[in-house]
Design a protein around this nucleic acid. Structure first.
Lengths: 216, 216
DNA sequence: AATATTCTAGAATAATATTCTAGTGGTTTG
DNA sequence: CAAACCACTAGAATATTATTCTAGAATATT
């Protein structure tokens, strides 16, 4: 078994890209199956048929069904993280550390979430629902990713906290205040329980996030 | 099959409470299994053994595994709804419709969430994770419940919106702003990713919720 | 080219959910 | 009270699905 979640490239032979492509393809098709029927609802045989491979091949690449699900999850999270970094980097930072900068930063955080979810609704829905699924080896990869990610965000915001532009709350609380409403709305919308799409409220959520954490 | 999720009482014979008790017991034990091993991880046989019954009995009462999972979910939501109603009713309403009343109401909403989650962490964790599991017949029951529930909340808050004490936003957005942060924090805490327990932040979340939706 | 390794196949197996048939025991009703 | 009825229990039989295994094809390394 290859034990490589389809995103790192650590080839033993060469950059055995043929196989890597296949894995990538499997991930994408598996996502579709999972989205369509749920993880439990999709059988290995469905994935085998949809990908035109064999059980042997699937198990060679991933080891078991859960590992496929984990890989899809992690790939999603990385895709999102990339967008978020891009948004924050585009803002630049470091020069003038004033209230406006903080405000724009918080908004960027919300925008990144709203935009990724709106662009990749299926993947987002999957990611929301299956964090708990990631176990074992994959769990370590994931928490490494998350640490990196959290550090990145912390570094971006901590100066503003020191400047007393953002409330001095634990970072977990700040994160929940900023992103919680977006995620809660998104979950309902993605599940088809809300009519109005998330992005219609992009500005409302961005502004509310700022109000929630700024120093009054 | 009895097709009764263990909460309504619509006996055909008499109030065949013996059977009803058994169902109730099954639900509680099933919850423990689900919490401990996840829904997929618990086999019908585990539940059978833990409840000292037979597969036949389980299938008679619930029809299939998913229906057990749904019933556990719905029972949880009703348990929470009851607490919330209690909190809001305790406030009384109708007399003086001023800003303080609205403020206290919003805080009560947050308190109810925080308190239920803190009191029933396992159940809460389960409920967070398995809404999407509810299907078919159970889905209808659930959406009936939810409508009732949403109406109740709407009725409580709409006067304050009319009085321009709370922002005039779609009720879905208001709900997300008030509860989103709590739920997001709770998910992480329940998953063991945060150290500090939710209830430590009860006041912070309550106040932030009010700031987020009050008319500035 | 020879060799080693990854990868693919699909049959065999194992684990698990679900169905089925036969009963048991309590409830209603004549 | 008895006899017909119906909810309920049991567990064996079946069906579905994940996983393992063995053999061989493809690909890379020397």
């Amino acid at each position: 078994m290859n034990e490589n979640n389809g995103l790192e490239k650590r080839p033993t032979h060469k950059a055995s890209s043929r196989s890597e492509q296949k894995k990538q393809q499997i991930l994408h098709i598996a996502l579709e199956c999972f989205v369509l029927h749920g993880v439990e609802g999709t059988t290995i045989d469905m994935i085998r048929e949809a990908t035109q491979t064999s059980v042997g091949s699937l198990y060679h690449h991933f080891g078991n069904k859960d590992a496929i699900a984990s890989a899809v999850f992690i790939a999603g999270l990385r895709d999102f993280a990339q967008l978020l970094k891009q948004y924050l980097n585009e803002l630049g930072q470091g020069d003038s550390m004033n209230e406006d900068q903080a405000h724009v930063g918080v908004k960027a955080l919300v925008y990144a979430n709203v935009d990724w979810i709106s662009t990749q609704p299926q993947w987002a829905n999957y990611v929301f629902q299956h964090r708990s699924r990631v176990k074992g080896v994959h769990e370590n990869k994931l928490s490494g990713d998350m640490n990196h990610f959290n550090n990145f965000i912390n570094n971006w915001f901590s100066p503003y906290i020191e400047q007393n532009l953002i409330q001095d709350l634990p970072q977990e609380v700040l994160a929940s205040l900023v992103i919680g409403p977006v995620h809660t709305y998104a979950r309902h919308w993605l599940a088809g329980r809300y009519e109005v799409s998330l992005k219609e409220h992009r500005e409302v959520f961005a502004e509310a996030a700022w109000q929630a954490i700024k120093v009054a």
